[in-house]
Nucleic acid binder design. Structure first.
Lengths: 146, 146
DNA sequence: GTTAGACTTAGAACAATTCTAAGCCTATAA
DNA sequence: TTATAGGCTTAGAATTGTTCTAAGTCTAAC
Protein backbone atom coordinates (compact mmCIF):
# COMPACT_ATOMS: atom_id res chain seq x y z
CA UNK A 1 0.00 0.00 0.00
CA UNK A 2 1.21 3.40 -0.86
CA UNK A 3 -0.38 6.02 1.30
CA UNK A 4 1.73 9.09 1.49
CA UNK A 5 0.52 12.17 3.17
CA UNK A 6 0.94 15.06 0.81
CA UNK A 7 1.56 17.99 3.05
CA UNK A 8 1.06 20.48 0.25
CA UNK A 9 -0.94 20.16 -2.92
CA UNK A 10 1.56 19.42 -5.71
CA UNK A 11 -0.29 21.62 -8.20
CA UNK A 12 0.10 24.60 -5.92
CA UNK A 13 3.85 23.93 -5.72
CA UNK A 14 4.08 23.59 -9.47
CA UNK A 15 2.32 26.92 -9.89
CA UNK A 16 4.61 28.55 -7.35
CA UNK A 17 7.67 27.38 -9.22
CA UNK A 18 6.34 28.49 -12.58
CA UNK A 19 5.46 31.87 -11.10
CA UNK A 20 9.13 32.23 -10.30
CA UNK A 21 10.40 31.14 -13.70
CA UNK A 22 11.44 27.74 -12.46
CA UNK A 23 10.74 24.66 -14.55
CA UNK A 24 9.00 22.32 -12.15
CA UNK A 25 10.89 19.08 -12.37
CA UNK A 26 9.98 16.26 -10.03
CA UNK A 27 13.05 16.87 -7.87
CA UNK A 28 12.33 20.56 -7.53
CA UNK A 29 8.72 19.91 -6.64
CA UNK A 30 9.85 17.49 -3.97
CA UNK A 31 12.29 19.95 -2.46
CA UNK A 32 9.75 22.76 -2.60
CA UNK A 33 7.17 20.48 -1.03
CA UNK A 34 9.42 20.09 1.99
CA UNK A 35 10.34 23.74 2.29
CA UNK A 36 6.80 25.05 1.91
CA UNK A 37 4.87 22.45 3.85
CA UNK A 38 5.18 24.95 6.70
CA UNK A 39 7.51 27.84 7.50
CA UNK A 40 10.77 26.05 8.20
CA UNK A 41 14.46 26.58 8.69
CA UNK A 42 16.31 23.69 7.17
CA UNK A 43 19.92 23.32 6.20
CA UNK A 44 20.79 21.51 2.98
CA UNK A 45 21.48 18.27 4.78
CA UNK A 46 18.08 18.28 6.45
CA UNK A 47 16.38 18.88 3.13
CA UNK A 48 18.40 16.06 1.63
CA UNK A 49 17.36 13.66 4.38
CA UNK A 50 13.71 14.64 4.21
CA UNK A 51 13.49 14.54 0.45
CA UNK A 52 14.83 11.01 0.50
CA UNK A 53 12.98 9.86 3.59
CA UNK A 54 11.08 7.19 1.71
CA UNK A 55 13.61 6.23 -0.92
CA UNK A 56 16.87 7.77 -2.14
CA UNK A 57 15.81 9.59 -5.25
CA UNK A 58 17.30 13.06 -5.19
CA UNK A 59 21.04 13.52 -5.14
CA UNK A 60 22.88 15.89 -2.88
CA UNK A 61 24.11 17.91 -5.85
CA UNK A 62 20.54 18.44 -6.95
CA UNK A 63 19.48 19.51 -3.49
CA UNK A 64 22.22 22.12 -3.52
CA UNK A 65 21.46 23.18 -7.08
CA UNK A 66 17.79 23.47 -6.29
CA UNK A 67 18.26 25.42 -3.09
CA UNK A 68 20.64 27.73 -4.90
CA UNK A 69 18.13 28.25 -7.67
CA UNK A 70 15.34 28.95 -5.18
CA UNK A 71 17.52 31.53 -3.48
CA UNK A 72 18.40 33.17 -6.79
CA UNK A 73 14.70 33.36 -7.69
CA UNK A 74 13.71 34.73 -4.32
CA UNK A 75 11.68 31.72 -3.23
CA UNK A 76 13.70 31.13 -0.12
CA UNK A 77 16.27 33.05 1.80
CA UNK A 78 19.56 32.04 3.33
CA UNK A 79 20.33 32.67 6.97
CA UNK A 80 23.89 32.53 8.27
CA UNK A 81 24.27 31.96 11.96
CA UNK A 82 27.26 29.70 12.28
CA UNK A 83 30.30 29.07 10.20
CA UNK A 84 29.73 26.19 7.86
CA UNK A 85 25.99 26.01 8.19
CA UNK A 86 23.44 27.72 6.02
CA UNK A 87 19.77 27.70 6.81
CA UNK A 88 17.16 28.00 4.10
CA UNK A 89 14.14 29.94 5.25
CA UNK A 90 10.89 29.53 3.38
CA UNK A 91 9.33 32.55 5.06
CA UNK A 92 9.86 35.34 2.55
CA UNK A 93 8.06 38.03 4.49
CA UNK A 94 10.40 40.52 6.17
CA UNK A 95 11.28 39.09 9.52
CA UNK A 96 14.18 38.29 11.76
CA UNK A 97 15.47 35.48 13.92
CA UNK A 98 16.16 34.15 17.33
CA UNK A 99 19.10 31.81 17.32
CA UNK A 100 19.53 29.52 20.28
CA UNK A 101 23.28 29.16 20.57
CA UNK A 102 22.90 26.02 22.63
CA UNK A 103 20.51 23.98 20.57
CA UNK A 104 21.14 25.60 17.19
CA UNK A 105 17.43 26.22 16.83
CA UNK A 106 16.31 29.12 14.67
CA UNK A 107 12.92 30.75 15.20
CA UNK A 108 11.20 33.66 13.55
CA UNK A 109 10.71 37.12 14.95
CA UNK A 110 8.13 38.73 12.78
CA UNK A 111 7.18 42.31 12.19
CA UNK A 112 10.15 43.72 14.00
CA UNK A 113 11.05 46.13 11.25
CA UNK A 114 12.61 48.57 13.64
CA UNK A 115 16.14 48.35 12.38
CA UNK A 116 15.06 49.64 9.00
CA UNK A 117 13.80 52.95 10.37
CA UNK A 118 16.90 54.39 11.84
CA UNK A 119 19.32 52.96 9.39
CA UNK A 120 22.22 55.29 8.69
CA UNK A 121 22.69 56.47 5.11
CA UNK A 122 24.07 53.78 2.87
CA UNK A 123 27.57 54.14 1.47
CA UNK A 124 27.77 55.95 -1.87
CA UNK A 125 26.58 54.11 -4.98
CA UNK A 126 25.04 51.28 -3.04
CA UNK A 127 21.50 50.18 -2.52
CA UNK A 128 19.85 48.10 0.13
CA UNK A 129 19.82 44.40 -0.44
CA UNK A 130 18.45 43.08 2.85
CA UNK A 131 18.61 43.49 6.59
CA UNK A 132 19.30 40.50 8.76
CA UNK A 133 18.76 40.76 12.47
CA UNK A 134 19.87 37.78 14.46
CA UNK A 135 19.19 37.76 18.16
CA UNK A 136 21.40 35.20 19.79
CA UNK A 137 20.01 33.73 22.94
CA UNK A 138 21.29 31.15 25.36
CA UNK A 139 19.74 28.92 27.95
CA UNK A 140 19.64 30.56 31.34
CA UNK A 141 21.70 29.13 34.13
CA UNK A 142 19.19 28.40 36.82
CA UNK A 143 21.13 29.65 39.81
CA UNK A 144 18.26 29.92 42.22
CA UNK A 145 15.79 27.17 41.84
CA UNK A 146 16.53 23.51 41.37
CA UNK B 1 68.90 45.93 9.20
CA UNK B 2 65.79 45.10 11.07
CA UNK B 3 63.42 48.00 11.19
CA UNK B 4 59.91 46.90 11.78
CA UNK B 5 57.14 49.37 12.27
CA UNK B 6 55.30 48.45 15.40
CA UNK B 7 51.76 49.59 14.79
CA UNK B 8 50.79 49.17 18.43
CA UNK B 9 52.95 49.28 21.49
CA UNK B 10 53.68 45.66 22.45
CA UNK B 11 53.41 46.41 26.16
CA UNK B 12 49.87 47.66 25.71
CA UNK B 13 48.97 44.46 23.90
CA UNK B 14 50.54 42.37 26.59
CA UNK B 15 48.54 44.19 29.19
CA UNK B 16 45.36 43.77 27.19
CA UNK B 17 45.89 40.02 26.99
CA UNK B 18 46.68 39.70 30.66
CA UNK B 19 43.61 41.73 31.50
CA UNK B 20 41.61 39.04 29.72
CA UNK B 21 43.32 36.10 31.43
CA UNK B 22 45.38 35.27 28.38
CA UNK B 23 49.03 34.34 28.74
CA UNK B 24 50.78 36.65 26.29
CA UNK B 25 52.92 34.38 24.17
CA UNK B 26 54.80 35.86 21.24
CA UNK B 27 52.32 34.40 18.75
CA UNK B 28 49.34 35.76 20.58
CA UNK B 29 50.91 39.19 20.85
CA UNK B 30 51.53 39.14 17.11
CA UNK B 31 47.97 38.19 16.30
CA UNK B 32 46.59 40.75 18.72
CA UNK B 33 48.92 43.36 17.26
CA UNK B 34 47.30 42.86 13.89
CA UNK B 35 43.74 42.81 15.16
CA UNK B 36 44.08 45.85 17.37
CA UNK B 37 46.30 48.03 15.24
CA UNK B 38 43.02 49.56 14.13
CA UNK B 39 39.38 48.43 14.12
CA UNK B 40 39.42 45.70 11.52
CA UNK B 41 37.41 42.86 10.06
CA UNK B 42 39.73 40.06 9.15
CA UNK B 43 39.07 36.45 8.44
CA UNK B 44 41.47 33.82 9.76
CA UNK B 45 43.28 33.59 6.46
CA UNK B 46 43.93 37.33 6.38
CA UNK B 47 45.29 37.26 9.89
CA UNK B 48 47.50 34.35 8.94
CA UNK B 49 48.89 36.18 5.94
CA UNK B 50 49.51 39.39 7.86
CA UNK B 51 51.06 37.72 10.86
CA UNK B 52 53.54 36.02 8.57
CA UNK B 53 54.07 38.92 6.20
CA UNK B 54 57.75 39.20 7.04
CA UNK B 55 58.61 35.60 7.74
CA UNK B 56 56.54 32.47 8.33
CA UNK B 57 56.51 32.14 12.08
CA UNK B 58 52.99 31.46 13.22
CA UNK B 59 51.20 28.34 12.10
CA UNK B 60 47.67 28.26 10.84
CA UNK B 61 46.59 26.09 13.75
CA UNK B 62 47.88 28.70 16.16
CA UNK B 63 46.07 31.46 14.33
CA UNK B 64 42.83 29.52 14.67
CA UNK B 65 43.54 28.60 18.28
CA UNK B 66 44.37 32.18 19.12
CA UNK B 67 41.36 33.64 17.40
CA UNK B 68 39.17 31.09 19.13
CA UNK B 69 40.68 31.99 22.46
CA UNK B 70 40.20 35.70 21.85
CA UNK B 71 36.56 35.08 21.03
CA UNK B 72 36.06 32.98 24.14
CA UNK B 73 37.62 35.72 26.25
CA UNK B 74 35.59 38.46 24.64
CA UNK B 75 38.49 40.25 23.00
CA UNK B 76 37.08 39.93 19.53
CA UNK B 77 33.77 38.99 18.07
CA UNK B 78 32.84 36.74 15.19
CA UNK B 79 30.67 37.97 12.37
CA UNK B 80 28.97 35.54 10.00
CA UNK B 81 27.99 36.93 6.65
CA UNK B 82 28.68 34.15 4.21
CA UNK B 83 28.87 30.42 4.48
CA UNK B 84 32.42 29.34 5.05
CA UNK B 85 33.82 32.67 6.04
CA UNK B 86 34.07 34.05 9.54
CA UNK B 87 35.16 37.59 10.20
CA UNK B 88 36.89 38.53 13.43
CA UNK B 89 35.95 41.99 14.56
CA UNK B 90 38.20 43.79 17.00
CA UNK B 91 35.59 46.43 17.75
CA UNK B 92 33.95 45.20 20.93
CA UNK B 93 31.60 48.11 21.38
CA UNK B 94 27.98 47.34 20.47
CA UNK B 95 27.65 48.02 16.79
CA UNK B 96 26.41 46.51 13.56
CA UNK B 97 27.55 46.01 10.01
CA UNK B 98 27.17 46.88 6.41
CA UNK B 99 28.10 43.97 4.20
CA UNK B 100 28.83 44.69 0.57
CA UNK B 101 27.62 41.59 -1.19
CA UNK B 102 29.70 42.41 -4.24
CA UNK B 103 33.09 43.09 -2.74
CA UNK B 104 32.69 41.15 0.48
CA UNK B 105 33.66 44.25 2.42
CA UNK B 106 32.38 44.62 5.96
CA UNK B 107 32.07 48.03 7.58
CA UNK B 108 30.83 49.18 10.95
CA UNK B 109 27.55 50.85 11.74
CA UNK B 110 27.95 52.23 15.18
CA UNK B 111 25.46 53.33 17.78
CA UNK B 112 22.46 51.95 16.02
CA UNK B 113 21.07 50.18 19.03
CA UNK B 114 17.54 50.47 17.74
CA UNK B 115 16.87 46.80 17.32
CA UNK B 116 17.36 46.23 21.02
CA UNK B 117 14.51 48.53 22.05
CA UNK B 118 11.60 46.83 20.47
CA UNK B 119 12.82 43.33 20.83
CA UNK B 120 10.01 40.87 21.48
CA UNK B 121 10.12 38.91 24.72
CA UNK B 122 12.73 36.18 24.67
CA UNK B 123 11.62 32.57 24.70
CA UNK B 124 11.21 31.06 28.16
CA UNK B 125 14.37 30.23 30.13
CA UNK B 126 16.65 32.03 27.75
CA UNK B 127 18.72 35.15 28.08
CA UNK B 128 20.15 37.52 25.54
CA UNK B 129 23.53 36.64 24.18
CA UNK B 130 23.97 39.23 21.44
CA UNK B 131 22.21 41.01 18.62
CA UNK B 132 23.72 41.02 15.17
CA UNK B 133 22.34 43.36 12.57
CA UNK B 134 23.76 42.89 9.11
CA UNK B 135 22.67 45.29 6.44
CA UNK B 136 23.44 43.79 3.09
CA UNK B 137 24.08 46.30 0.38
CA UNK B 138 24.91 45.99 -3.28
CA UNK B 139 26.48 48.25 -5.87
CA UNK B 140 23.92 50.29 -7.70
CA UNK B 141 23.38 49.72 -11.36
CA UNK B 142 23.99 53.09 -12.89
CA UNK B 143 21.10 53.18 -15.34
CA UNK B 144 21.06 56.89 -15.95
CA UNK B 145 24.46 58.41 -16.11
CA UNK B 146 27.48 56.99 -17.84
C1' DG C 1 68.83 20.77 36.12
C1' DT C 2 64.04 18.43 36.21
C1' DT C 3 59.61 18.38 35.66
C1' DA C 4 54.84 19.65 34.57
C1' DG C 5 51.83 22.05 32.08
C1' DA C 6 50.72 24.98 28.72
C1' DC C 7 51.63 26.29 23.93
C1' DT C 8 52.79 25.56 19.11
C1' DT C 9 53.28 22.93 15.11
C1' DA C 10 52.73 20.20 10.56
C1' DG C 11 49.94 17.61 8.58
C1' DA C 12 45.92 14.63 8.62
C1' DA C 13 41.09 14.63 9.04
C1' DC C 14 36.69 16.58 8.51
C1' DA C 15 32.35 18.83 6.91
C1' DA C 16 29.88 21.68 3.93
C1' DT C 17 29.74 22.96 -0.53
C1' DT C 18 30.95 23.26 -5.45
C1' DC C 19 32.66 21.31 -9.59
C1' DT C 20 32.96 17.99 -13.43
C1' DA C 21 31.80 15.18 -16.87
C1' DA C 22 28.67 11.90 -18.26
C1' DG C 23 24.04 10.31 -18.77
C1' DC C 24 19.00 11.24 -18.88
C1' DC C 25 14.72 13.36 -20.10
C1' DT C 26 11.56 15.94 -22.70
C1' DA C 27 10.03 18.93 -26.26
C1' DT C 28 10.33 20.05 -30.73
C1' DA C 29 11.74 19.21 -35.59
C1' DA C 30 12.20 16.26 -39.32
C1' DT D 1 7.92 7.79 -35.38
C1' DT D 2 12.94 8.84 -34.86
C1' DA D 3 16.74 12.59 -34.37
C1' DT D 4 18.39 16.46 -31.87
C1' DA D 5 19.21 19.98 -28.55
C1' DG D 6 18.94 21.94 -24.14
C1' DG D 7 18.31 21.76 -19.73
C1' DC D 8 18.43 18.70 -15.61
C1' DT D 9 20.34 15.25 -12.62
C1' DT D 10 23.87 12.40 -11.00
C1' DA D 11 28.05 10.16 -8.55
C1' DG D 12 32.00 11.12 -7.18
C1' DA D 13 36.06 14.08 -7.09
C1' DA D 14 37.77 18.46 -5.71
C1' DT D 15 37.87 22.48 -2.92
C1' DT D 16 37.63 25.34 1.10
C1' DG D 17 37.61 26.63 5.72
C1' DT D 18 38.23 24.69 10.00
C1' DT D 19 39.37 21.33 13.67
C1' DC D 20 41.94 17.47 15.36
C1' DT D 21 46.07 14.82 16.59
C1' DA D 22 50.20 13.65 18.28
C1' DA D 23 54.64 15.12 18.81
C1' DG D 24 57.84 18.66 19.94
C1' DT D 25 59.01 23.21 22.35
C1' DC D 26 59.00 26.48 25.84
C1' DT D 27 58.75 28.31 30.40
C1' DA D 28 58.16 28.69 35.22
C1' DA D 29 58.52 26.42 39.60
C1' DC D 30 60.83 23.46 42.28
Amino acid sequence: MDMKIQSTVPEAITELLRAHQITPTSQRVKVAGILFAEPAHFCAEQVYVRVNADDAEVSKATVYNTLGLFVARGLVRQVFVEPGKVFYDSNTKPHHHFYDTGSGELTDIDALGVALHELPPLPADTELDSVDVIVRIKRQFKTRRV
